[in-house]
Computed example of a mutant assay.
Amino acid sequence: MRAAYEIVQRLMWDFSFRAEFHQDRKEAIAKHFPEARGEAILFGETAKLYGLEEEAYRRAAALQRTSKAIFEHSHPLILSFFGTQFFYRLLANFFARVAEDASPSIRILEPFDGYVVGPHIIEQAKELASRSNSWVLEVMSYDWAIWHAGRVVQGWPPLAKTPPLTEGGALLAFDFDVKSMLREIKRLNSCSVASDFYKERIVPGTGSEYLAIYPSDGSVAVATLDKSHYDELSRAIQDHNSPARLEVCSVLERIGLVANASFLCCSREASDEARLSGELPRVVEPQPH
C-alpha cells in the first residue's frame, strides 16, 4: 500500500498522531513513517485539520449507523454504558489490526458492513462490560442472532455453522425477562430519549427465557422453548450419546429449527409412547426488529 494512503488512514483514527500532525506535519510523518519522508510534501497544502477531523467523524458516524442497524435494541445500551468513545476505540483497534495484516485487500477495508464489524463490536463489549452490566451482552446476542439469521435468509453464508441447527440458527438462554426488556427499549426508542435514560430505565426483571432464532420460510422465526426442551436439545447437540426423545426431534424438524434431526433422536423403541405435554410453542408475533 502506498505510504500516503497509510498516513491518511492513520490520521482518521489515531487522535495522538493527528495532534502531532497538526503541530508539525513533517516531524510527525518522519517519526511514525520514516520510510515516507518524501510523502510529507503531499500534505503540505491539501490536508487541512478540519477536513481530517470531519472525515474521522464521518467514519465514527458510519460505524454507529452500522451498529444501530445490527443491534437495534442493544445499540442505545452500548452508548449508555460505554459512551461514544466505544466507537472511536473500535475504529482504532480495527485499523491497528488491519495494519498488521499482510493482505492488501484487507488493509484497505473499512468496517462498515455488519459481517465485518458485528463480531468486533461484540468482542469489544465483552472487554468493557462489568459484572453489573454484563446482561447487555445477552441483549446483544439476541440482536445479533436476529440480524445474522436475516442475512442468511437473504442468501449470505452463515458466519458460523452449528449443526444440526438450520444454518443461521442460534439457541439463546436469558436469566431475566428479555421480552419485557425489549418492549421497554422499543418504547424508549419511540420517544427518542437520550442514551442516559436507558441506564436508568432498563433494568433486568425477574424471570428466564429460552429462545431459538433461525431462518424459516424466507423470514426469521423465533421459537420459545421451555427449560427442559432447551436443556435436552443443548445436550443432544453437544453430546451424541445423549439423544433427544423422538417426539422432540419430530417437533424440531417440523418447525424447521433443525435441518436433520436423525442423529439427535433416540430410536422409536427407546422412546416412551406418551405424547409431549405440548409442542415447543412457536412465537408468532411481530418481530421486535
Rank of each mutant, 00 (worst) to 15 (best):
96 A>H: 12
64 Q>A: 09
60 A>R: 12
69 A>C: 04
86 F>I: 09
71 F>S: 02
73 H>I: 00
102 A>L: 12
97 R>Q: 13
61 A>N: 13
63 L>Q: 15
95 F>R: 08
93 N>C: 04
102 A>K: 15
89 R>W: 02
59 R>E: 11
76 P>F: 01
66 T>H: 04
105 S>K: 15
99 A>Q: 13
81 F>Y: 12
80 S>R: 06
89 R>S: 04
73 H>F: 01
94 F>C: 01
97 R>D: 14
103 S>I: 10
71 F>K: 02
106 I>G: 05
84 T>S: 11
81 F>H: 12
97 R>G: 13
80 S>H: 09
88 Y>K: 10
71 F>N: 03
80 S>I: 03
77 L>S: 04
67 S>W: 09
92 A>T: 14
66 T>E: 03
66 T>A: 01
65 R>Q: 03
93 N>K: 14
61 A>I: 09
85 Q>Y: 13
85 Q>S: 11
99 A>Y: 15
98 V>Q: 10
81 F>C: 04
96 A>F: 10
75 H>I: 00
78 I>S: 07
61 A>L: 08
83 G>T: 00
76 P>S: 00
61 A>M: 10
97 R>L: 06
84 T>F: 15
83 G>M: 00
87 F>L: 02
64 Q>N: 11
60 A>W: 06
82 F>P: 13
86 F>T: 12
80 S>P: 12
80 S>T: 03
91 L>H: 08
63 L>D: 11
73 H>M: 00
86 F>H: 14
66 T>M: 01
86 F>M: 09
106 I>N: 14
78 I>W: 10
102 A>V: 12
104 P>W: 09
105 S>D: 14
72 E>Q: 01
97 R>C: 08
103 S>G: 09
78 I>M: 07
85 Q>P: 06
66 T>L: 00
59 R>Q: 14
103 S>C: 08
102 A>H: 15
85 Q>T: 13
100 E>A: 03
82 F>L: 04
74 S>M: 03
77 L>G: 02
101 D>R: 08
87 F>Q: 02
78 I>K: 08
62 A>I: 07
62 A>R: 15
75 H>V: 00
71 F>I: 04
75 H>Q: 04
95 F>Y: 15
94 F>S: 03
67 S>C: 14
89 R>L: 00
75 H>G: 01
76 P>K: 01
97 R>F: 13
100 E>K: 11
93 N>Y: 11
103 S>D: 15
59 R>A: 07
63 L>T: 15
69 A>W: 07
86 F>Y: 12
69 A>E: 13
91 L>V: 06
83 G>L: 00
66 T>D: 03
64 Q>L: 05
70 I>D: 05
82 F>A: 01
101 D>A: 02
90 L>R: 03
88 Y>E: 10
77 L>T: 04
65 R>D: 06
67 S>H: 14
84 T>P: 05
79 L>E: 09
68 K>V: 07
64 Q>V: 08
